[in-house]
Simulated scan of single mutants.
Amino acid sequence: MSLEGPPADETLMLAFVAGDAQAFEVLYDRHAMPVWRFVQRSVHDSALADDLVQDVWFNLLRHAPDYQPKARFRTWLFTLAHHRLVDHWRTHKVHSPLDADTEEGAALADTLAAESGFGPDRRLDSREQAQALLDALTALPVAQREAFLLQAEAGMSVAEIAQATGVPMETARSRLRYARAQLRAALETFA
């Protein structure tokens, strides 16, 4: 009986670079949804997120031969996602609000207000709270929203966020602090 856990992401990436296609499949299965959620909650459009995330994975494949495990694989992957988002924002300055009046907003609010086993009144409150969170996230400046989502969706540390976004650690820490304060203030009516 082996006491070893699943292989580390960095080991899998090196195996993929060496020609093991199954290693890539494992990496993709582990990280596809967190990357997609990060991108989708940054652009507020599922179809666009699909396209951008596809670009992220293609970019990973293009740069795979140059991969060196200097940081956690997850940090490297989310750095690629960050760069793709920056490229997108640079060419598309339009940011649409995500609200319950759109099909996309209603679906995401329903997802965030997942079935809790409570009655309809409680689910309505939960959906309203989820929508308030989406509205508060949308209202955050892009850099703060991105830092918050990298921590919330990717589970990245402050140092990893700083590395992924190319800013000093204190800047990443400040962005997180301001994002949390604004979200807390926006949601205090639900406390």
Rank of each mutant, 00 (worst) to 15 (best):
M1S: 15
M1Y: 11
S2W: 09
E4I: 04
P6L: 13
A8L: 15
A8C: 11
A8R: 14
D9F: 06
T11Q: 14
L14P: 09
A15M: 11
A18P: 10
A18S: 15
A18F: 13
G19H: 13
G19S: 13
G19W: 10
D20I: 09
A21N: 06
Q22R: 15
F24P: 08
V26A: 15
L27T: 12
Y28I: 11
R30Q: 12
R30P: 07
A32G: 01
A32M: 07
M33V: 11
M33I: 02
W36V: 03
W36E: 02
F38K: 02
R41K: 10
H44T: 05
Q54I: 00
D55T: 04
R62V: 01
R62T: 07
H63R: 02
Y67K: 07
Q68I: 03
P69R: 07
P69C: 04
K70L: 11
A71R: 13
R72N: 07
F73Q: 02
R74F: 04
R74L: 10
T75N: 05
L77K: 07
L77E: 03
F78L: 14
A81C: 03
H83E: 08
H83L: 02
V86E: 08
D87F: 05
T91S: 14
H92A: 03
A100N: 02
D101H: 12
T102G: 10
E103C: 01
E103Y: 01
A109K: 04
T111G: 03
T111M: 12
L112H: 12
A113V: 09
A114N: 09
G117K: 03
F118A: 14
G119V: 05
D121L: 10
D121H: 04
R123C: 04
L124D: 12
R127T: 04
E128R: 14
E128K: 14
Q129W: 02
A130D: 11
A132D: 13
D135V: 11
T138R: 06
T138P: 02
A139Y: 11
V142H: 15
A143R: 11
Q144V: 07
Q144H: 14
E146N: 06
A147E: 05
Q151P: 01
Q151A: 14
A152N: 10
E153G: 08
E153F: 12
G155K: 09
M156E: 02
V158N: 11
V158D: 09
V158H: 07
A159L: 13
E160H: 06
A164W: 01
A164C: 08
V167C: 08
V167Y: 00
T171D: 02
T171G: 00
A172Y: 08
S174N: 11
R175S: 00
L176I: 06
R177Q: 13
R177K: 08
L183I: 13
A186K: 03
A186H: 05
A186P: 05
E188P: 00
F190Y: 15
F190T: 00
A191D: 09
A191L: 08
